[in-house]
Simulated assay, not measured.
Amino acid sequence: MTPRLRTIGQAAIPVSRLSFGAAGIGNLFTPVTDTQAEEAITTALAHGYRYFDTAPHYGLGLSERRLGSVLRRQPRDQFTISTKVGRLLIPQESHSDDLADGFAVPATHRRVWDFSAQGVRRSLLSSLERLGLDRVDIVYLHDPDAHEQQALDEAYPELERLRSEGIIKAIGIGMNQAELPTRFIRNTDIDAVLLAGRYTLLDQRGLHQLLPLAHERGVAVILGGIFNSGLLADPKPGAPFDYSAAPEQTLARAVALKAVCERHHVPLRAAALQFPLSHPAVVSVLVGTRSASQTTDATQMTNLSIPTDLWAEMKALGLLPDSAPTPEETG
């Protein structure tokens, strides 16, 4: 697949429209072997993925180590990589696992929230060591929900200093809410927002303020969680929505979306992947994959032709707002 590239920030950092979210290879919920992780990454590269996102939080550094072990063997100008700050990993003696935080790894470290300037720099230097790289392209403030003021007053200015030093090229904020990233767009010079789960077939909260403002200000939006934790991949009773059991009304909407797709002979996964890419503020969709087969499936679903009538029917049934751009409107 020839990569379709867009860019982020004044540094014009290239990103592929379909990108690799590396939480899965950090053993999110269930274990992944080193071989499976490497195959997922190399398959992504073969399919034209050029943007890879990770974080210390993902598997207590396992995701960063696995991603770096593959990417540092590639020419540095052939990939874009991002990581996150806000959680320091502190070594600890423990015989338990990390499943309480969602990762099937030994609890060798504990996470400590830290959006201080010193904490930001310390976190990034530790990430670079795990990745085996001398720089990353984008750094996101990771989930500063309860640390809003410190993120604005201390963490963000430190990222500006790191950007001016050339250690990073772009600054972003990554959250599963739309309100605080909107404030950052208004009040800072950030380059990107990683918005998880808030602009999908099921949840368009990002459409009201964040996406129009980002487009107006030239802030790139990268979308994660486009399957809303799995409900849009396979809507059925008991399926998760935003990491907990889907409410009955939400499940019913997902089932109705699937029914429209089936009438047009289109997998729901394809519609879920292609819909959010239609907004002009969106430069990339991150897909969390943990295997070569999942990486290949995401590529195939993104490239699948979808009839215009499918989007029209979703809007006619009230399953999508009329104001939401759809692929036939944006080409």
Rank of each mutant, 00 (worst) to 15 (best):
residue 143 D to N: 10
residue 96 S to E: 11
residue 81 I to P: 01
residue 88 L to F: 08
residue 96 S to C: 10
residue 91 P to I: 08
residue 98 D to Y: 12
residue 127 S to I: 04
residue 164 S to A: 15
residue 86 G to N: 05
residue 159 L to A: 07
residue 107 A to P: 04
residue 164 S to C: 15
residue 149 Q to V: 14
residue 136 V to L: 06
residue 151 A to L: 04
residue 111 R to I: 13
residue 150 Q to C: 10
residue 84 K to E: 04
residue 144 P to T: 05
residue 160 E to W: 08
residue 84 K to I: 07
residue 149 Q to S: 14
residue 142 H to L: 01
residue 170 A to R: 05
residue 162 L to N: 06
residue 168 I to S: 02
residue 99 L to K: 06
residue 115 F to R: 03
residue 140 Y to E: 02
residue 152 L to N: 10
residue 101 D to F: 08
residue 152 L to Q: 09
residue 107 A to N: 06
residue 80 T to Y: 05
residue 160 E to P: 12
residue 114 D to S: 06
residue 158 E to I: 12
residue 111 R to Y: 14
residue 147 H to E: 12
residue 151 A to G: 13
residue 99 L to C: 10
residue 164 S to W: 12
residue 90 I to Y: 06
residue 140 Y to N: 04
residue 95 H to G: 15
residue 155 A to T: 14
residue 144 P to C: 07
residue 128 L to I: 07
residue 132 G to S: 01
residue 116 S to Q: 04
residue 159 L to G: 00
residue 145 D to N: 14
residue 152 L to A: 11
residue 160 E to Y: 13
residue 116 S to F: 06
residue 138 I to H: 05
residue 117 A to M: 11
residue 136 V to M: 01
residue 113 W to V: 15
residue 96 S to V: 13
residue 167 I to C: 09
residue 147 H to A: 12
residue 149 Q to K: 14
residue 80 T to P: 01
residue 109 H to R: 06
residue 94 S to P: 11
residue 154 E to V: 13
residue 151 A to D: 09
residue 85 V to E: 04
residue 141 L to S: 05
residue 103 F to A: 07
residue 96 S to H: 10
residue 164 S to E: 15
residue 129 E to H: 09
residue 112 V to G: 10
residue 161 R to G: 13
residue 118 Q to F: 15
residue 87 R to G: 10
residue 167 I to P: 08
residue 107 A to F: 04
residue 132 G to C: 02
residue 120 V to T: 07
residue 152 L to T: 11
residue 144 P to V: 04
residue 176 N to D: 14
residue 135 R to I: 06
residue 164 S to L: 15
residue 114 D to G: 09
residue 121 R to D: 11
residue 157 P to M: 11
residue 105 V to P: 04
residue 87 R to H: 11
residue 96 S to P: 08
residue 92 Q to C: 11
residue 156 Y to P: 04
residue 161 R to T: 15
residue 125 L to Y: 10
residue 97 D to L: 07
residue 162 L to Y: 03
residue 137 D to R: 00
residue 84 K to R: 03
residue 137 D to Y: 01
residue 170 A to D: 04
residue 115 F to E: 09
residue 137 D to F: 00
residue 167 I to E: 08
residue 118 Q to I: 15
residue 174 G to Q: 05
residue 144 P to H: 07
residue 78 Q to M: 02
residue 78 Q to I: 03
residue 129 E to K: 07
residue 176 N to L: 05
residue 94 S to M: 11
residue 81 I to L: 03
residue 89 L to A: 11
residue 140 Y to A: 04
residue 146 A to W: 12
residue 109 H to C: 03
residue 108 T to G: 10
residue 163 R to C: 09
residue 78 Q to E: 05
residue 77 D to I: 01
residue 120 V to D: 05
residue 124 L to Y: 01
residue 119 G to C: 09
residue 96 S to A: 13
residue 150 Q to Y: 06
residue 134 D to T: 05
residue 149 Q to T: 15
residue 166 G to Q: 02
residue 166 G to W: 00
residue 123 S to K: 03
residue 138 I to A: 02
residue 158 E to K: 13
residue 140 Y to Q: 06
residue 151 A to E: 09
residue 93 E to C: 12
residue 158 E to G: 12
residue 132 G to T: 02
residue 175 M to I: 08
residue 171 I to F: 03
residue 137 D to G: 01
residue 159 L to K: 00
residue 93 E to Y: 12
residue 164 S to M: 15
residue 160 E to L: 13
residue 169 K to L: 14
residue 94 S to Y: 10
residue 130 R to T: 01
